[in-house]
Simulated scan of single mutants.
Amino acid sequence: MSANSFGNLFRLTSFGESHGKAVGGVIEGILPGLDIDMDFIQHEMNRRRPGQSAITTPRDEKDQVEILSGVFEGKATGTPMGFLVWNSDQKSGDYDNIRNVYRPSHADYTYQTKYGIRDHRGGGRSSARETIARVFAGAIAKLILRREGLTVQAYTSQVGHIQLDKSYQQMDLEVAESNIVRCPDPEVAQQMIDFIDQTRINKDSVGGVITCVIKNVPVGLGEPVFNKLHAQLGHAMLGINAVKGFEYGSGFGAAAMTGMAHNDEFFMDGDRVRTRTNRSGGIQGGISNGEDIYFNVAFKPIATVLKEQQTVNKDGEEVPTVVKGRHDPCVLPRAVPIVEAMAAMVMVDNLYLNKMYR
């Protein structure tokens, strides 16, 4: 299996399966001398971990990260940073009944056909447990961005039909971390929580949207042809489990607008060039223009529902199946830090690349 690495100058290579001994990775491109704030890193890991609330999977993994290399006396040495998170609460027996069955809308059939073998226990490498490595690398990236003054913050903006009707500028995004669905509007958050809980009771799942905002971005990040900054962000987001769509700035809404209505007029703010509106989402010609970058990521309802469905087994027979195990009725609360992590890695990579021109 190829394509287990992400990034160029700041690069993550991940490994591990849902029901294997551990998941982890190696990060290259961490500049020597970076303070490695383990409390912050573990906090980021805790935001992603299972078992954190009543609306997430009850799988009880503490996700304590163990750094194997690349750190000395609390600082990065500049060498590859290896890290591990041991799996401790697998219940592989829950998956015995699907050893020879392809679960609807999962990767079972495609994996089996492509590789001739698959790990049926929780999906193996296709499991979202693999995203542990992304969140760790994202935490390191955030520490780098912190030194540069950039912030990356995501929040749940829609669950099913329940949708925020405010823009990110109208809310205090810090409030998102005060509730278990990670929505910055407490009233809407409670509606989302109730809806997810009812979906869980019904043994079903629900999707939604995560919005991400990147602030204090310098002008000039991104390349104007094949590596446009928004294309890199789209690539990062569409590589997250269960993601079905990506839009930045005005997104699909731009299709219904005229050029005059959509254009962001420039003006001088002191000695700085600014735009009066930001329908471009902070990116023009594939290059950051210094305004906030904001985008939406659409997540499907996860494929695992605890009801009987029709499928096909390895012998080509049509059979009924009921999936067992412990699963999230909605991935959004735990996906918020994953979206942030992938965005942070893209931004660090581009900061590094941009410095090559200066």
Results as ranks from 00 to 15, higher is better:
residue 303 A to C: 15
residue 186 P to V: 06
residue 283 I to W: 04
residue 51 G to W: 05
residue 249 G to V: 03
residue 70 G to V: 00
residue 198 Q to K: 11
residue 188 V to Q: 03
residue 245 G to W: 09
residue 273 V to I: 05
residue 358 R to S: 09
residue 16 G to M: 01
residue 240 I to E: 06
residue 104 P to I: 03
residue 325 G to W: 04
residue 120 H to C: 11
residue 205 S to E: 01
residue 134 R to F: 13
residue 189 A to R: 04
residue 340 E to L: 05
residue 256 A to L: 06
residue 194 D to M: 03
residue 301 P to I: 05
residue 310 Q to A: 00
residue 135 V to H: 07
residue 19 H to A: 10
residue 64 Q to L: 12
residue 142 K to P: 04
residue 183 C to S: 10
residue 111 Y to T: 03
residue 105 S to L: 14
residue 90 Q to A: 15
residue 263 N to G: 09
residue 19 H to F: 04
residue 67 I to Y: 12
residue 260 M to C: 14
residue 146 R to F: 15
residue 299 F to P: 04
residue 162 I to F: 01
residue 48 R to V: 07
residue 102 Y to H: 04
residue 344 A to Q: 03
residue 256 A to F: 09
residue 64 Q to F: 12
residue 21 K to L: 15
residue 37 D to L: 07
residue 80 P to Q: 10
residue 178 S to F: 05
residue 76 A to S: 12
residue 104 P to R: 05
residue 84 L to F: 13
residue 236 A to D: 07
residue 121 R to H: 07
residue 94 D to V: 05
residue 109 Y to I: 01
residue 30 I to Y: 02
residue 114 K to P: 02
residue 126 S to Q: 09
residue 327 H to K: 00
residue 22 A to S: 15
residue 351 L to K: 00
residue 278 N to H: 03
residue 167 S to T: 14
residue 309 Q to H: 12
residue 91 K to I: 10
residue 187 E to Y: 13
residue 189 A to Q: 03
residue 148 E to W: 10
residue 27 I to H: 00
residue 180 I to F: 12
residue 209 V to Q: 02
residue 138 G to S: 08
residue 216 N to H: 12
residue 245 G to Q: 07
residue 301 P to C: 06
residue 351 L to P: 00
residue 325 G to Q: 02
residue 247 E to R: 07
residue 171 M to S: 00
residue 246 F to N: 06
residue 313 N to Y: 02
residue 67 I to V: 13
residue 204 D to V: 04
residue 140 I to D: 01
residue 88 S to R: 06
residue 120 H to W: 12
residue 30 I to A: 01
residue 202 N to R: 12
residue 45 M to V: 09
residue 36 I to Q: 02
residue 96 D to L: 13
residue 35 D to P: 05
residue 321 T to W: 08
residue 87 N to E: 10
residue 244 K to T: 12
residue 50 P to N: 04
residue 319 V to L: 08
residue 297 V to Q: 02
residue 298 A to Y: 14
residue 159 V to E: 01
residue 55 I to E: 09
residue 77 T to D: 01
residue 332 L to V: 01
residue 48 R to N: 06
residue 43 H to I: 12
residue 147 R to W: 08
residue 166 K to A: 12
residue 90 Q to F: 15
residue 83 F to L: 03
residue 69 S to L: 09
residue 272 R to E: 13
residue 157 S to R: 10
residue 121 R to A: 08
residue 310 Q to N: 07
residue 122 G to P: 00
residue 354 N to Y: 09
residue 46 N to M: 11
residue 350 N to Q: 13
residue 301 P to K: 06
residue 123 G to S: 08
residue 280 S to P: 04
residue 286 G to W: 10
residue 314 K to M: 14
residue 70 G to K: 01
residue 203 K to M: 11
residue 281 G to V: 02
residue 19 H to K: 05
residue 22 A to M: 13
residue 72 F to L: 14
residue 283 I to A: 04
residue 36 I to M: 13
residue 145 L to E: 10
residue 52 Q to T: 14
residue 42 Q to H: 06
residue 236 A to G: 06
residue 43 H to E: 15
residue 294 Y to A: 05
residue 80 P to F: 03
residue 287 I to N: 01
residue 269 D to V: 08
residue 8 N to S: 13
residue 291 E to K: 08
residue 86 W to K: 14
residue 5 S to W: 05
residue 24 G to E: 06
residue 74 G to T: 08
residue 241 N to Y: 11
residue 184 P to Q: 11
residue 157 S to Y: 07
